[in-house]
Simulated scan of single mutants.
Amino acid sequence: MTFTRRQMLQQGGAAALLAGLGQHALAQSGAPFETARFITGFAAGGTSDTLCRRTAVRMQPDYAKAMVVENRTGAGGQIAVTYVKDQPADGSTILQTPTSILTIYPHIYKKLPYEPLVDLAPVTVACQFDFGFAVGPAVPASVKSVPEFLEWAKANPAGANFGSPAAGSTPHFIGALLGKNVGVDLKHAAYRGTQPAMLDLLGGNVSSVSGPIGDITQHLPTGKVRILGVSGAKRSRFAPDVPTFEEQGIKNATHSEWFAFLLPAKASPEVVARANAAAKAALAQKDVIDGLATFGLETMSSTPAELTELIKKDTAKWGPIVKEVGFTAEG
């Protein structure tokens, strides 16, 4: 699927703001909202939160006079999705979410409180990124590769564990696939975002973390974190000295991910188009592109239809992978 990078859709002139207009009328007129919100299901300081905050600044004041970011954490991101689907569909509440909540969760939960393409209206892809697998002080300095870590974990069952930003997330499955590669049962610890997992890694409370590359690289200056491998098909430009999993002989864990923006399902085509234009314009700004790059995020954008097809494609892709790992969760 091809996405338009750094492409801006020209917005029409905003109608004059009339006293007493409600948010619905504002959305229909094209006038700026007094306040609009990005809702993310992950903690402040992580890549999801950073994407929202960087984009929000550039959507002011044309889309909204004030863009607020709300971190509604819990249930691996489900709380945020469930909240947004029930909000007014006028464009004033925008969900930011990673792929797994839309494409993996339907395979692992018997009952979800939402249906991705029934309860949500896709707006645009926002960025893509690879994952890193890092170890901390609990792992000997002599361990310098993923295969060496797996051998160490096999010999040290008490340390055979890894953290991820959420149960059922892409990095959760990557960690599980790494263990299955050599028959090691890596115990999984789910957190409310990668940053809490990284804090436990730094403290020696968990041996390793599977998470977005940018969430890991920001901790490298501490000298306590080592990235052993990355999940992309090629080396990440954000960690060029780190070999991919495939380079290290691991064939089943090559995955990248994307973040996207969505609205409540009842949003009209005009409301979706307006949000799409505003988000794409923000993502095309050099300061946003450069700022997100420091977190390992590569900006991109799409049409609503392209995002819809991407959700369908990735949902189909993850079905067999979930079955191979054998993970299920109570919905």
Rank of each mutant, 00 (worst) to 15 (best):
A176V: 04
A176N: 08
A176S: 15
L178S: 06
L178Q: 10
L178I: 09
L178R: 07
K180A: 15
N181L: 09
G183E: 12
G183V: 11
G183R: 03
D185Y: 01
D185L: 09
L186G: 05
L186P: 07
K187P: 05
K187H: 13
H188V: 08
A189S: 14
A190N: 11
A190I: 11
A190L: 13
R192G: 14
G193V: 09
G193H: 11
G193I: 09
T194K: 03
T194C: 11
T194M: 02
T194I: 06
Q195E: 15
Q195H: 10
P196T: 02
P196S: 02
A197V: 01
M198V: 01
M198P: 00
L199G: 10
L199K: 14
L199E: 14
D200S: 12
D200F: 00
L201R: 09
L201K: 08
G204F: 00
G204Q: 01
G204E: 00
N205I: 03
N205R: 15
N205D: 13
V206C: 01
V206I: 15
S207F: 06
S207D: 07
S207I: 01
S207W: 03
S208T: 12
S210T: 05
G211K: 02
G211M: 04
G211E: 05
P212S: 11
I213A: 11
I213L: 14
D215R: 01
D215K: 00
I216K: 01
T217C: 05
T217K: 13
Q218K: 15
H219W: 14
H219G: 03
H219Q: 13
H219A: 15
P221H: 07
P221W: 04
T222V: 10
T222M: 08
T222F: 06
V225P: 08
R226A: 10
I227W: 03
L228M: 11
L228N: 09
S231M: 11
S231W: 10
K234H: 12
K234Q: 14
R235Y: 02
R235E: 10
R235W: 04
S236I: 02
S236C: 03
S236E: 04
